[in-house]
Design a protein around this nucleic acid. Structure first.
Lengths: 239, 239
DNA sequence: GATAATTTGTTCGTATGTATC
DNA sequence: CGATACATACGAACAAATTAT
């Protein structure tokens, strides 16, 4: 509601009036970031200094900074200073999570469908965009997963972590930041369900887990996008 | 960075230590929303009251509330109180916008790819899930778009609005709230670009616009999902 | 290792602006 | 118009964490 105004101007929307002190601080900092005066990694002035140079109270500066932190734009290293973030993919999805929590209507079916859709999309891009470097990373994650799954005393925690790592790598080598973020989102939403599934498969059908991931691995390595629909099965979750 | 922790707890992640006062307030409010103690539309206690009942200073409450506002979870009606939002799709995209501003590099390509991917996914679902009721709505939107495009003195604004309406209907009849939200998101991100494209097509190749939408309309009506890749073209945007 | 300086974290008191009744 | 309830804003003070000396 607050920060949108300045960005919306850029994207063509408008807003009637908004001249609160905090908003003003936000606008000026946003402007500095957009224009490149503040680049990722840069340290911004201290709170006291900002308060003085903007001619406002320190509390107002703090409120503005907190919002930027929530968006992942700034990050504070205490007793050191406040800096412009260079990676912000993590906190970007927070509002989406809140959105889904408030809109309880989003049924589990919706999430399942969305998940499969994203999985296929990511896979398609990974097959297309991966480099040789990427393949090494993927192979490492794949072999680690297989090793965990075939261990004598298999550990759910370990397999689940390796599974997550594998899919995370697949996500990265797709080389599309937005798709990666969305995939992260859906994986967070399905976190506990996927854990249950892993535990179930470990007890009852560990081969299924191995084969499914081998199919994905092979498809990427061979750049074979012909069977994606069957590689990413509907019944990945226990219902 | 801040708000993620509580959500992560729900989804199984943990955080080492995070006992800041503001974070604590955020956690408790988030918990109240998740558990349903606070529902959309509800008024939350006043700042003074929250400060007293949490045993913290009023500024900490304010900082926490500001963050929720930035995420669109809370909204303030001044001199009236603070309320839980019922619609929050607006401000959800802010972090993404900031993300794109900071990641100047690959972002536009990412968006284009993501957009096409979402468009295909939505179309696939629309073809599968639409009802007879839906078809009426779709037909209305379609015919209105064609009418606007074939008018004697075609108006960019009108066509663009009709275009948006058409795609919005396609989104709705897919009957998946999450996919719909994501599609809305990508359409907001591409708002100005799409407007430019519409203006360009109106001048130079209005038939292309008409044919493209007719193809989509036909595919849905006939429930024909065989040519989706070609129906949703890569060059939808001007580069 | 201890101390000082810097910077953010938190709180309190108070005054002001703004909408509702 | 006045009273009330609430958010907005400022400034001062002290606490806690980190770095530099």
């Amino acid at each position: 509601m607050e920060v949108i105004s300045i960005l919306d101007k850029k994207y063509g929307f408008s807003r009637i009036d908004n001249t609160s002190v905090v908003q003003n601080v936000i606008d000026q900092l946003t402007e500095a970031i957009i224009s490149g005066k503040l680049k990722p990694g840069d340290q911004i002035p201290t709170e006291t200094e900002l308060a003085r140079s903007f001619g406002v109270g320190r509390n107002s500066i703090r409120e503005a900074i907190k919002i930027f932190i929530a968006f992942g734009v700034l990050e504070i290293r205490r007793a050191e200073g406040t800096f412009v973030s260079n990676s912000l993919s993590q906190s970007m999805i927070n509002p989406l999570l809140y959105g889904i929590i408030l809109n309880k209507g989003d049924s589990y079916e919706s999430i399942k469908e969305f998940r499969k859709h994203m999985e296929i999309g990511i896979l398609k891009l990974s097959i297309k965009n991966h480099t040789d470097e990427d393949l090494k990373m993927l192979r490492e994650a794949y072999e680690n997963l297989i090793k965990c799954a075939q261990a004598k005393n298999p550990d759910v925690e370990a397999i689940f972590e390796a599974d997550n790592k594998f899919h995370s790598v697949v996500s990265i080598i797709a080389h599309n930041a937005l798709m990666e973020t969305m995939n992260e989102l859906v994986r967070k939403l399905t976190f506990s369900k996927r854990y249950e599934t892993t535990a179930y498969l470990l007890e009852n059908n560990i081969d299924y887990l191995i084969n499914a991931h081998t199919a994905i691995y092979d498809a990427i390595v061979k750049r074979d996008a012909s069977n994606l629909d069957s590689i990413v099965p509907d019944h990945y979750f226990i219902d």
